[in-house]
Amino acid sequence: MSLSLPPLFTSVAADGPPREHAVALARAGCDGGTVVHGSAAGTLEAAIVFAPETPLAHAAQILPVCAVGFQNALGALAPPEVAVHLGWDGAIRVNGGLCGALGLVAPAADPAAIPDWLIVTLSLDMLPASDDPGSDPDRTALYAEGCGDMDPDALVEAWVRHTLVWLNRWSDGDLRALHAEWRGLAHGLNTEITQGHEAGTFLGVDEDFAMLLKTGAATRAIPLATLVDVAD
């Protein structure tokens, strides 16, 4: 099924896992704005291929752009009592429970180089993985949060539309608005967290969306580019 997307975006039904299909299309030289979508076993999966014009260190900011776009999309389609929050690392939380994640995929991880392409992936649990909700109390699914009738294709379409709004603002240099929107949705601010192999207090982000993690008297900035998954 072809999605109804804004101009310059093209939908492709996934032939296999959307992430792998998107990587194959990107390597073959597909246009930026290609949206690969599919679902399997109660999970919605999608990926958007971008064609960056700046080094990866800056281009990686597309992750919070897409994350805010997704929150806005799900917030518009879900019942009003459903709260959606975002982890710095791409985690998606619905009513406090981990429900999915966004990720970054690139052909290489050099933050100073302009990548040939950059992909933002989306994985979202539509149905619970288990009939026993107590087996993993930190996880949830849209069905369990009152969104059982949500159309996955409509959600992907809304994600792309809302992301385009923030993509345009980000491209125009409106970082203040993006930072303000993201901070209001961020999960775990001013709490003790573990990011990768490091633990500390999550103070927020700097102007480049690097995580500010305080450990003892020292505060370290962890760049967004460290989240990039290099495609096999």
Rank of each mutant, 00 (worst) to 15 (best):
3 L>Y: 03
3 L>Q: 03
3 L>D: 02
4 S>I: 12
5 L>F: 06
8 L>P: 00
9 F>Q: 13
9 F>G: 05
10 T>G: 02
10 T>Y: 07
15 D>P: 00
16 G>K: 11
17 P>G: 01
21 H>E: 09
21 H>P: 00
23 V>A: 05
26 A>T: 05
27 R>T: 10
27 R>W: 04
29 G>M: 11
30 C>V: 15
32 G>P: 13
34 T>N: 09
34 T>I: 07
34 T>D: 03
35 V>S: 00
37 H>T: 07
37 H>N: 02
38 G>F: 05
42 G>F: 11
47 A>F: 08
47 A>I: 06
52 P>K: 11
54 T>N: 04
54 T>F: 05
55 P>T: 11
55 P>N: 09
60 A>C: 14
61 Q>R: 15
62 I>R: 08
63 L>R: 14
63 L>E: 12
63 L>S: 12
65 V>P: 02
66 C>P: 00
68 V>Y: 01
82 V>K: 02
85 H>C: 12
89 D>N: 15
90 G>C: 11
90 G>P: 11
91 A>N: 07
91 A>G: 15
93 R>H: 15
93 R>I: 05
94 V>A: 08
95 N>L: 09
96 G>A: 05
96 G>H: 06
98 L>P: 04
98 L>H: 14
102 L>I: 15
107 P>M: 06
108 A>I: 04
112 A>K: 08
114 I>S: 03
116 D>A: 15
119 I>N: 02
123 S>P: 08
124 L>C: 06
127 L>A: 15
129 A>R: 13
132 D>C: 06
139 R>G: 01
142 L>N: 07
145 E>D: 13
146 G>V: 15
147 C>V: 14
148 G>E: 15
150 M>E: 07
153 D>R: 07
154 A>K: 06
155 L>R: 07
157 E>M: 11
159 W>H: 10
162 H>C: 12
166 W>N: 02
168 N>V: 14
175 L>P: 00
175 L>V: 10
176 R>M: 08
177 A>Y: 05
181 E>Y: 02
181 E>G: 00
182 W>T: 02
188 G>P: 11
190 N>S: 12
196 G>Q: 09
197 H>P: 00
198 E>Q: 14
201 T>D: 07
205 V>W: 13
209 F>M: 13
210 A>P: 00
211 M>I: 13
211 M>E: 05
211 M>D: 03
213 L>Q: 09
216 G>N: 01
216 G>R: 06
222 I>S: 03
228 V>N: 05
231 A>L: 03
232 D>M: 01
